[in-house]
Amino acid sequence: MSKFPEHIAIEKSHPTAVLDWHDRFGDRTLIVDGKQIVDVITLLRDSFGYNMLVDLTAVDYFPRRPRFEVVYHFLNVDSHARLRVKVQLEESHPHIASIISLYPIADWLEREAWDMFGIKFDGHTNMKRLLLYESFEGHPLRKDYPKTKRQPLIGPQN
């Protein structure tokens, strides 16, 4: 399997950006250095026409290191190409640059990732919880959050 064109183009302008890649199950995937994520995504959007951010989410691979992965799914609506971009983050203070200026929908998706995994998106001006309430402590989709640990606003505790 040869490298796909996005990969080659990124390597040309940002030689250290792509750390790894695969296309298992036909899903083309790039693993990218977190510090250069905005540059990479700008390039993908402007030169390859990935005009839709289909999904942005995170995965917690506890106890593996690096622990977190932020996963972006892109779609080119005209040519129907899809691409997955992943960034790996360390456990202590996971943070990454926000892409809200490139795709407005990233606003809510990043807020959700913060809510569920506690990943900070630098440059996001409204980093509030999306689905849970402000007084909720912890981030429930982390593997070390017990499934039934309830934090009710009213009513009996557990």
């Binding site: 899903d27 799914h73 997955r84």
Partner: peptide, 25 residues
Amino acid sequence: EGEVYFPVEGGNGELGFYIVSHPDE
């Protein structure tokens, strides 16, 4: 082990499932 994204057309649009299978300890 692996990860896939599979979209179908739901009632409201692209309904995608991103599923990761990863062995636990």
